[in-house]
Design a protein around this nucleic acid. Structure first.
Length: 727
RNA sequence: GGGCGGUUAGCUCAGUUGGUAGAGCAAUCGCUUUACACGCGAAAGGUCACAGGUUCGAGUCCUGUACCGCCCACCA
C-alpha cells in the first residue's frame, strides 16, 4: 500500500480538545478581531463599509449558559461572515454589572457566611466585597466566552461600571434632566418591601394566587377586596356616573357609616374607572397603595393617606392594628369585621394576580415616593431637530423602517408595549450601581456630573440598571466623546438578543440613542428564541435539566455545540436542545476532517485546466455559496447551515468523492494518458470544492475548518478567518 | 380580558411566492468497500391537530374549533 500523502494529523479522528486551544491562540495572536489591524495588514479596505455588533453583555454574576452560547454562536457567524466578505467588522465585548442581581447575590453570600446584613457592613465595605466578587466572576465569563470561538475585539472590552461607561451614564442623566425629560416627583411606584427598593413596571411579574375575596358592608354599599388590611383609610366610595343602580347618590355626597375602627364619613365619587360589570359596581379606594386608586384620587383632588410603611407594617391610621405586619394583621382585621357584622360574603378560592419583583424580590406594595422619573410623554427637541416625545420617537424608529425587527411579528408587540408605557421610574435604593448625579443642600436640588461644591450631599440612590444598558451601543464606542469608532460603527448593524428582553433593553436603547445621538442604535434587531431542554422545559438548576455549554464543548467540541444551537433554530422560536443533537454535529466535524484526508491523498500538481464536467462541479459550489449568503443576509442562519451541511455530506462526500475513486484509480495507470489528465482535473476540482466548503463552513464551525486550513499545503491566506468569502 | 406562537415520521424540527411530503437523532436489516464504524448501503416509518371554504390542485391561502406554550393588562 502506498503511504498516505496527507499530513499525519488526518490519520486519527478529529479531536476538538487538541485543536481548539491552538486555533484560539492563533486567532488571538493575529489580532484580526480588531478591524484596525485588518486594515493595517491590508486585509480590509480602509473605505470598506462597516459592520458592527455590540455584544449584549452577560451579567457578571453568572457563568455561561446555553442562552449565551446561542447568542455567541449567532453573532460570531454574522461577524465572521462579514469579515470574510471584506466589511470593516467590529464585535464589541462587555459585561454587565446587573445591579440588583449582583448585590442580592453578594448580600446573600455574606449573610450565609457571616450572618451580617449590608447595614452591618456599611455602604463602602459592601461595595468592596461586590467589586471583589465581580472581578472574579468577570474572569470566568470572559474565559468561557472565548472558548466558544467568539471573535470579539477584546481591545475594546467594556464593563457597565468602568470609568468611561460611568461617565457616559452621568452625562446622559444630566442632559436628559436639563432637557426636562428627567424629573423628580412624588408618584406611586412599585415598592419591594423585601429588597427595600423601587422596581420598574417591566420587572414586575404577575403570579397567580388564591386568596379569600371578602364582601364588606360599607354603609349601604357592598364592596369587595382581597386586601382588608388596606381598607382603614378608605373614605371615598367610587361608582360609575352612568350606573343606574346608584343614580340616587350624587358626586360629593357624604354618608355616615360604621367601619373597622368606628364611625366614619364617606364621600361619594363618580368616576368612569369604576367597572359596572364587576361585583356591585361600587368600590372604595386606597390611593396610597394602588395605582388606579391614586389616579382617581388625583383626578378629584382627594386626600391620600398612607396605611402601610416601607416594611409592610401598619401605620397609625390602623388604630389598634398599628405596628402589626400586614400578613399577620389580615385575619385579625377580618375577624373584627365579622364580629361587627360587616362581612356579607366570602369567596374562599378567589384566583387573582399578585405582582412580584421578578429579580428575586418580594411581593410588590405600591407606595407613593419621591423618585426620579423619565417623562415619556413630554415633547422635547431631539439632536436631529425634531420635536417629539420619547414615546413617539420609539414608535418612529421602527415604523420608519430605520430599525427592522426580525421576526416581524415582534414589531406589533413592541408597539403595544409603547402604548401602555408610563413614566419610567429610574431611581433605586440599592447601593451597587451608578449613583444619581443629583446633589442636595438645605432643601435645594442640583443635577450635575460633579459636586456643586462644599456641603452638597449626593443622592444616595442609584440608577435602574437598564438606564445604563440603554446607552450601551454608543457608550461602548466612546460616547460622549466624538470618537472615530462612533462615526464608523454607530448605528450598529444588528442587535442580536433573546426576545425576552425586547422591552427591557431594545426599547430603551432606541430611546436613549434617539435622544442623545439623534439616531437609531441599530439597523436590525434579530431576536432569537430561548434554549430549552429536550422536552421544552426551561433549563433550571431545580429541574436538574441544565445542559452546560462547557461540558458540551469538552465532550463534542465548540463547533458541534455551535451547530446544534443554529440548525433547527428558526428566528424567534424556542429551541429544544438535547445532547444527541450535539453529538450528531461532532460527527459532521469528523466527516469534514476525513473528506480533507481523501482530497489531500490525491494531490493535484500545479495549474490544471478543468474539464467540462469538473468545471460544472466547481460551479455547483458557487451556486451553493450564493444561496448560503442569501440565507445569512436574511438572518436564516439555520437554513444556511443546513444547506452547507447537506452539500458537504450528501453531495461532496457521498457522491463527488465516490465518483472520484475510479477516476483516480484509472489515473494511476502510467500508460493511460487520458486517464491521468482526467485525474489531474478532478484532483484540482476537489481541492477547489474543499477550499470553498471550508470557507462557507468557517463562520459556523470556525475551529475544525481553521484546523484543516492550517494543514493545507497551499492556501491564499495564513488564516481561514481572514480568507475571502467565495462569492 | 386582549394579543402572539405552536400542533408535519417514535423524538427534535425544515418546508421560502400553493403543484401528489423532507432532514437529523432513534429504531430495523446488511456491510473490517483502502477518506471516515464519529462510517457505508438498504428498507421502514406521516389521512401534515380537527372541521369547513377558496382553487384544476393546500402542510402552504381564508373562516372556525380544540389542545399546548408565551406575552401583555392598575378589575377593586
Amino acid at each position: 500500500m502506498e503511504p498516505s500523502k496527507a499530513p499525519k494529523a488526518f490519520l486519527k479522528p478529529y479531536n476538538p480538545n487538541e485543536q481548539e486551544p491552538r486555533m484560539l491562540e492563533a486567532w488571538e495572536k493575529s489580532g484580526y478581531a480588531n478591524p484596525d489591524k485588518m486594515i493595517e495588514d491590508g486585509l480590509t479596505a480602509p473605505d470598506a463599509p462597516s459592520y458592527s455588533i455590540v455584544l449584549p453583555p452577560p451579567n457578571v454574576t453568572g457563568t455561561l449558559h446555553m442562552g449565551h452560547a446561542a447568542m455567541l454562536a449567532i453573532e460570531d457567524i454574522l461577524i465572521r461572515y462579514h469579515r470574510m466578505r471584506g466589511y470593516k467588522t467590529l464585535w464589541v465585548p462587555g459585561t454587565d454589572s446587573a445591579a440588583i442581581a449582583t448585590q442580592s447575590k453578594v448580600e446573600t453570600d455574606i449573610y450565609k457566611a457571616e450572618k451580617k446584613t449590608r447595614h452591618d457592613l456599611g455602604r463602602e465595605e459592601l461595595m468592596k466585597r461586590i467589586d471583589a466578587f465581580v472581578e472574579e466572576s468577570k474572569a470566568t465569563i470572559i474565559n468561557q466566552t472565548k472558548k466558544m470561538g467568539s471573535s470579539l475585539d477584546w481591545s475594546r472590552y467594556a464593563y457597565t461600571m468602568d470609568e468611561k461607561r460611568y461617565r457616559a451614564v452621568m452625562e446622559a442623566f444630566v442632559r436628559m434632566h436639563d432637557a426636562g425629560l428627567i424629573y423628580r416627583g412624588n408618584r406611586i411606584v412599585n415598592w419591594d418591601p423585601k429588597l427595600q427598593t423601587t422596581v420598574s413596571d417591566d420587572e414586575i411579574e404577575y403570579v397567580e394566587q388564591k386568596d379569600a375575596f371578602y364582601h364588606f358592608k360599607y354603609g349601604p354599599f357592598d364592596i369587595g377586596t382581597v386586601r382588608p388590611e388596606t381598607k382603614f383609610g378608605d373614605k371615598y366610595v367610587v361608582m360609575h356616573p352612568d350606573d343606574a343602580r346608584y343614580k340616587e347618590y350624587t358626586h360629593g355626597q357624604q354618608i355616615d357609616l360604621e367601619w373597622i375602627n368606628g364611625p366614619i364619613t364617606a364621600t361619594i365619587i363618580k368616576d368612569e374607572a369604576a367597572d359596572m360589570e364587576f361585583g356591585s359596581g361600587v368600590m372604595t379606594i386606597t390611593p396610597a397603595h394602588s395605582g388606579i386608586d391614586f389616579e382617581i384620587a388625583q383626578r378629584h383632588k382627594l386626600d391620600v393617606e398612607r396605611v402601610i410603611d416601607d416594611r409592610g407594617i401598619l401605620l397609625d391610621i390602623a388604630g389598634e392594628f398599628k405596628g402589626q405586619h400586614i400578613k399577620k394583621a389580615r385575619p385579625l382585621i377580618v375577624e373584627k369585621l365579622r364580629a361587627k357584622g360587616l362581612i356579607s360574603k366570602v369567596d374562599e378560592n378567589y384566583v387573582h394576580n399578585v405582582s412580584t419583583n421578578s429579580r428575586g424580590g418580594g411581593i410588590i406594595e405600591p407606595q407613593i415616593k419621591l423618585q426620579w422619573f423619565i417623562d415619556v410623554n413630554k415633547a422635547v427637541q431631539f439632536p436631529d431637530g425634531k420635536t417629539q416625545t420619547l414615546k413617539e420617537r420609539m414608535r418612529e424608529a421602527i415604523s420608519s423602517g430605520n430599525t427592522k425587527i426580525m421576526p416581524e411579528r415582534f414589531e406589533k408587540i413592541y408597539y403595544h408595549w409603547i402604548e401602555n408605557l408610563r413614566d419610567w421610574c429610574i431611581s433605586r435604593q440599592i447601593w451597587f450601581g451608578h449613583r444619581i448625579p443629583a446633589w442636595f443642600k438645605d432643601g435645594e436640588v442640583r443635577v450635575s456630573v460633579t459636586s456643586p461644591g462644599e456641603g452638597w450631599e449626593q443622592d444616595p440612590d442609584t440608577l435602574d440598571t437598564w438606564f445604563s444598558s440603554g446607552l450601551w451601543t454608543f457608550s461602548t464606542l466612546g460616547w460622549p466623546e466624538d470618537t472615530d469608532d462612533l462615526k464608523t460603527y454607530h448605528p450598529t448593524s444588528v442587535l442580536e438578543t433573546g426576545y425576552d428582553i425586547l422591552f427591557f433593553w431594545v426599547a430603551r436603547m432606541v430611546l436613549m440613542a434617539g435622544f442623545l445621538r439623534g439616531e437609531v442604535p441599530f439597523k436590525n434587531v434579530y431576536l432569537h428564541g430561548l434554549v430549552r431542554d429536550g422536552q421544552g422545559r426551561k433549563m433550571s438548576k431545580s429541574l436538574g435539566n441544565i445542559i452546560d455549554p462547557l461540558t458540551m464543548i469538552e465532550k463534542y467540541g465548540a463547533d458541534a455545540t455551535r451547530l446544534s444551537l443554529i440548525i433547527g433554530a428558526s428566528p424567534g422560536n424556542d429551541l429544544k436542545l438535547s445532547e444527541d443533537r450535539v453529538r450528531g454535529y461532532k460527527h459532521f466535524a469528523n466527516k469534514l476532517w476525513n473528506i480533507t484526508r481523501f482530497v489531500l491523498e490525491n494531490p493535484h500538481g500545479g495549474e490544471v485546466k478543468l474539464n467540462a464536467g469538473d468545471q460544472k462541479l466547481v460551479d455547483e459550489v458557487v451556486e451553493i455559496a450564493k444561496q448560503v449568503s442569501a440565507h445569512i443576509d436574511a438572518f436564516r442562519l439555520d437554513l444556511a447551515a443546513d444547506q452547507i451541511y447537506h452539500f458537504v455530506w450528501d453531495r461532496f462526500a457521498a457522491e463527488i468523492l465516490e465518483e472520484s475513486k475510479p477516476i483516480f484509480r484509472a489515473g494511476g495507470d502510467p500508460s493511460n494518458s487520458s486517464g491521468q489528465a482526467a485525474a489531474a482535473s478532478r484532483a484540482h476540482a476537489l481541492s477547489s470544492i474543499l477550499t470553498s466548503s471550508l470557507k462557507l463552513l468557517h463562520p459556523f464551525m470556525p475551529f475544525v475548518t481553521e484546523a484543516i486550513w492550517q494543514q493545507l499545503p497551499k492556501k491564499e491566506s495564513d488564516l481561514l478567518m481572514v480568507a475571502k468569502w467565495p462569492v
